[in-house]
Design a protein around this nucleic acid. Structure first.
Length: 114
DNA sequence: TTGCTGACCGACG
DNA sequence: CCGTCGGCCAGCA
């Protein structure tokens, strides 16, 4: 696919929008896919800004590398993130996804183009 | 422009 | 196992 000049945020949004229903990925995985492995924090920052983005970004499907819902406090209602995940069939216990590996979707492996 | 801050991550002791 | 640190880089005062 053609790689146009897009901002880091826009790229993050594109990847996030491709996360399949019922699957999750991590900030670091998205950053790695975008070619800047150390920019995981920026991915989180992009998610924070995604609420004001035009398109709908499934920010609840992005967690940290341990499968923990570290960003839940940014959803207005702290329980919303967990609710959305459980609604997709993902079990969450103590802010952590059960069988994280089972649901993990790695853009680096799933998306060949970059 | 400078200097923080941050929904992260891996390395180190 | 735990705390701390450097790197990453966009936004904001």
């Amino acid at each position: 696919m053609g790689e146009k000049k897009r901002s880091f945020f826009e790229k993050v949004y594109e990847v996030a929008a491709m996360i399949p229903y019922g699957r999750v990925t991590s900030y670091g995985a998205i950053a790695a896919y975008l070619g800047s492995k150390g920019s995981a924090r920026m991915v989180g920052w992009a998610m924070n800004a995604s609420f004001s983005a035009k398109e709908d970004i499934p920010a609840h499907r992005v967690v940290n590398r341990n499968g923990m819902l570290t960003g839940k406090n940014h959803f207005g209602d702290p329980s919303l993130m967990q609710q959305l995940l459980e609604n997709e069939g993902i079990e969450v216990k103590n802010n952590k996804i059960t069988d994280f590996k089972k649901y993990f979707w790695d853009p680096v492996k799933e998306l060949q183009d970059y």
